[in-house]
Amino acid sequence: MDKAALTKYILDKFAGKVDLLDTGKVEPVFRLESDFLLEFCRAINSDETLHIDFLCNIAGVDTGERFEVVYSVASVKNRIRFDFKIAMAYENAEVESVQSVWPGANWHEREVWELYGINILNHGNLTRFLLPDNWDQGYPMRKNWDAPDFVRMPES
């Protein structure tokens, strides 16, 4: 399935709930609302034509105006790849966990929570793992986190 056909298929299937963004340079990038996320993931996972069985990556992004969570997914069987993202305001940023569809999302989501402070709902294991356990200096991947030359580690 080439890019145009894939775009058309998804836009038709999820009409009104998924928008195509023009930022995707190679693969299409869709945008959807946060409350539709889990339903969308389940649908593309079980859909025969798409059969998205492989979650490549979850990236949190701070664009300077808002948060985005970008999911890169692929189908090993049908050789499809595309991205979709959820954009949200800084305040009360939260997103549903997709572990029930792809268990491998676990660590990727933990990382988004830890470095951006985007809350992951129904995650089950939101504990620090890249930063020290008692880290108390905010979310270091946010753009407003002023990166000092030296970070003093919290005393353990």
Binding site: T23, K25, C56, A59, V70, A74
Partner: peptide, 16 residues
């Protein structure tokens, strides 16, 4: 302006 996720086959798997 734009975004891209590109992946290659590394010796340890998908390097994206």
């Amino acid at each position: 302006k734009g975004e891209v996720y590109s992946r290659i086959e590394n010796s340890r798997g998908e390097m994206g």
